[in-house]
């Protein structure tokens, strides 16, 4: 995030950047997120449009992977039924750390239109896996996908990497 801007600084000019290694790693991590190619329902059609000519999702550095083991984040696009819920949990557990979740659409945020009478629909995917970014809409516009992706990149670029183990131990 803005590493190259520092070259304009007269004090630090001449090709030398002073900064934290953490910033460099986070810059790399946030700009090349690979996602699990996984569509559930209506939102997946908007996600296909997002991947196609007009919106070109790949300019965010995202590449679809069909295996959860190669993915950095998972997009839950659509209604999560009870039957599908444990599948999503298994897929999430197969992903390697660090991993992120984007919940797309009302259905996976909270149950959406099926919230009240849906006897078979999970009321929010955050009941089974932790969600980082919620994208509202039924279905969300492709612009909303872009906004959600940028929010995730922002989140990743501000994360602490070092001393993480120590920090986690202190939290426990």
């Amino acid at each position: 995030m803005g590493l190259l801007d520092r070259l304009d600084d007269p004090y630090e000019g001449g090709g030398i950047i002073l900064g934290k290694v953490e910033d460099l790693l986070n810059w790399g991590r946030s700009k090349s997120d690979w996602y699990l190619h996984f569509g559930l329902a209506c939102c997946a059609i908007e996600f296909m449009a997002m991947n196609a000519s007009h919106f070109d999702f790949m300019r965010f550095g995202t590449i679809p992977r069909t295996s959860p083991r190669q993915a950095d984040f998972i997009m839950v696009t659509g209604t999560v039924t009870f039957k599908m819920a444990d599948r999503i949990k298994i897929l999430y557990e197969q992903m390697a750390e660090p991993k992120y979740v984007i919940s797309v659409g009302s259905c996976s945020n909270c149950g959406g239109p099926y919230w009240e009478h849906g006897y078979h629909v999970l009321k929010g995917v955050d009941r089974i896996i932790p969600v980082d970014v919620y994208i509202p809409g039924c279905p969300p516009r492709p612009e909303a996908f872009e906004e959600g992706m940028m929010l995730l990149q922002k989140k990743i670029s501000h994360q602490a990497i070092f001393n993480k183990r120590k920090r986690l131990e202190s939290e426990v």
């Binding site: 039924t81 099926y114 009478h117 849906g118 078979h120 629909v121």
Partner: peptide, 14 residues
């Protein structure tokens, strides 16, 4: 089948 069963007929009753 049934991974996307969304209770259509139940909703119609309500």
């Amino acid at each position: 089948l049934g991974y996307l069963h969304r209770c259509f007929e139940k909703h119609c009753e309500k």
